[in-house]
Design a protein around this nucleic acid. Sequence first.
DNA 1: CCGTGTGAAATATTTCACAGCC
DNA 2: GGCTGTGAAATATTTCACACGG
Lengths: 255, 255
Amino acid sequence: MSQPVRVAERRRDANRDVNRAIPDATIARLPIYHRVLGQLVESGVSTVSSEELAGACGVSSAKLRKDLSHLGSYGTRGVGYDVRFLAYQIARELGLTQPWGVVIVGAGNLGHALVAYRGFASRGFEIVGLLDTHPDVIGQRLGSPGREVSVRPMADLEQIVLGGRAQIGVIATPAEVAQDVCDRLVAAGVRSILNFAPVVLAVTGDVEVRKVDLAVELQILAFHEQRRNDLIPEFDHPSDAEAFDPESLGEAINA
Amino acid sequence: MSQPVRVAERRRDANRDVNRAIPDATIARLPIYHRVLGQLVESGVSTVSSEELAGACGVSSAKLRKDLSHLGSYGTRGVGYDVRFLAYQIARELGLTQPWGVVIVGAGNLGHALVAYRGFASRGFEIVGLLDTHPDVIGQRLGSPGREVSVRPMADLEQIVLGGRAQIGVIATPAEVAQDVCDRLVAAGVRSILNFAPVVLAVTGDVEVRKVDLAVELQILAFHEQRRNDLIPEFDHPSDAEAFDPESLGEAINA
DNA sequence: CCGTGTGAAATATTTCACAGCC
DNA sequence: GGCTGTGAAATATTTCACACGG
């Protein structure tokens, strides 16, 4: 997706292993470590070994140690890691020690689910805008009592982003309009986008797009499920000659 | 996540490169290729080169060709790929040529969004159950006019799965109950699980779990966003001495 | 010619295994 | 003695570049 990342030279913290690229694979696991560390804090655990933490995160201890070694030497040999201190170091590496503004486009079921999601605010993400085109939902108030968000018209997008409030855009719209929404977000200055629409977004190289695609995940599961069944003799699959009908295919693939 | 996969020896199709492991990285991209091919069919395109298809999928043409080479030789040198034929081959590899039953646990906002998702049925996934514990939502009818689903009580889980209708389970519940739901799904025979709850599920080795985690994706974006800002001198970050307060940390991490 | 299919090279990631430090 | 941090080895994945076939 994106290239491994070189830490800026000007960082001051002597504790940190400066000028080292942190692998993407590691970055993708840090949020898990961070979440589990938070749970350990709540359980009153103050120290944890790589073996224990790795177990709770579903990774090998060697992988965990290697991942953490990219951030610096935050453990104590013979003892383990201080849970709170390690959580803080990971949070800082991920940028969770500063607030991020998120604008969500699309207030359908998915948009509602996102607004309802706890663990947003606690990690420094604030929903600074929730947009939709549908007159019926505009003006609706969502969210928990403390953190209410009201649905605003799409026209407010530029104002919200240009006001410097939103660094991250979330696309929770139908696929048909996702590229348009993406273009408007980028034009307004958003450089980080999380896309839930099942389309490949076209963006310039300086924009980071991550995508979450339900259908993709299900299909990966289906592949493995099929494999499991392949080992069972009763199962059988169509061969080309039997099953490939070039005429009937096609339109059926898309929704 | 899971190990690369060895195709079962008994496959008959002479056209296929038998007994080859297909890399996980390739499997993860096949659904994208499949979806874009479907769009090409709808556009009336009948042949496509690796360069064109790769562009539409956001990958390099070399990667696309290598990926497809794991399935077999389905292109024509000097010409490209037959769109419909390639779509079918990918569909078969992914297991989309057979129907899959999906049981969704949790009929909150996310469950609603999943039921509303088109592109479910068109890829052979049928929602055979939608479960919730909340008395208010049980009995509710959701989904499009043709494909209606009504919310059933959690107690129906075993009946649905043991009836052989559900091969895939989707967990769209609050984090607190996700492990319990997972255990019940597995006990009833489900071996493929898609988890939307922000917890690391503990399962035995024969169960495939994939997870979709909004917070993780946002944090990865935040990391890259922070990096971008690191290159701008005005920005600065707390050093350990200034910002790490072991007392105030902790409980704040979790939702 | 043109574009696929693929060995070989280059990268990236994971795993091993143990030296080093508390 | 125990557990971290890390070089080195093993795997996995991507990229290169070109032989080959239509």
